[in-house]
Amino acid sequence: MPDGGFCKLPGGSVVVALSLPSPAAEGVTVRILVHAANRSRALTRLRNLGLRAYLRGNTHPPTPDEVTAVLHHPEGLLWRTTPSRALELWHPIGALLRP
C-alpha cells in the first residue's frame, strides 16, 4: 500500500486513515477511517462533520483489517481510540461527535 494515509482500491475508490486528537476528550487520540470515491472527497466528509481543525496526521496508510472494517460499514466512516484496546470495536462516527 502507498504511504500518505490512504490506499486506492481496485474499483477506484479510496480508504483514508487519519490519527487525530479526539474532539470529545482531551489527551485521547482516535483513528478515523473514511471510504470515499477519492481522497479529497473523504477529507471533505470529515470537514463537513466539523473536524476541519484536526485534518493533519494522515501519514500511516490503513491496514488490511482497517480497510475490511470500513468497507463493511454502511456509512463508510468509523473510529476507535489509538492505540487500540485489545477488545475495542470500531464505532460509527456519530458516537464520537455526540455531546
Results as ranks from 00 to 15, higher is better:
R52G: 04
R85G: 15
S13Q: 12
T63Q: 08
H91M: 13
A53G: 12
V16L: 15
E66A: 03
A69I: 12
V15N: 07
V70H: 04
G12M: 10
F6P: 01
T63G: 02
L71R: 13
R45F: 00
S84R: 14
R41P: 00
S84Y: 03
G94C: 08
G11P: 12
A69Q: 08
E26I: 07
G27F: 04
R85T: 15
E26Q: 05
L9Q: 11
R39Y: 00
A69Y: 09
G27S: 09
P74K: 05
Y54N: 09
T82L: 14
F6G: 01
L55I: 09
H72R: 13
H35N: 13
T63S: 13
D65P: 01
E75Q: 15
T44H: 07
P61F: 06
L78M: 09
G50E: 01
P23H: 01
L20P: 07
L51P: 04
D65I: 06
A86V: 15
V15C: 12
D3R: 13
R39W: 00
E26V: 10
I93W: 01
A25H: 12
R56Y: 02
E66H: 05
G5R: 00
S84D: 12
L77A: 03
L43M: 09
P99D: 10
E88K: 10
P64S: 06
P61S: 07
H72K: 11
P2C: 04
D65K: 15
R41L: 11
A37L: 14
I93N: 03
L87H: 10
N58Y: 08
L55V: 08
D3N: 09
L43D: 01
R98V: 15
A36K: 00
F6N: 02
P2V: 10
P21R: 07
R56H: 11
V30D: 02
D65H: 12
L51E: 02
P61M: 00
S22I: 12
S19R: 15
G5A: 10
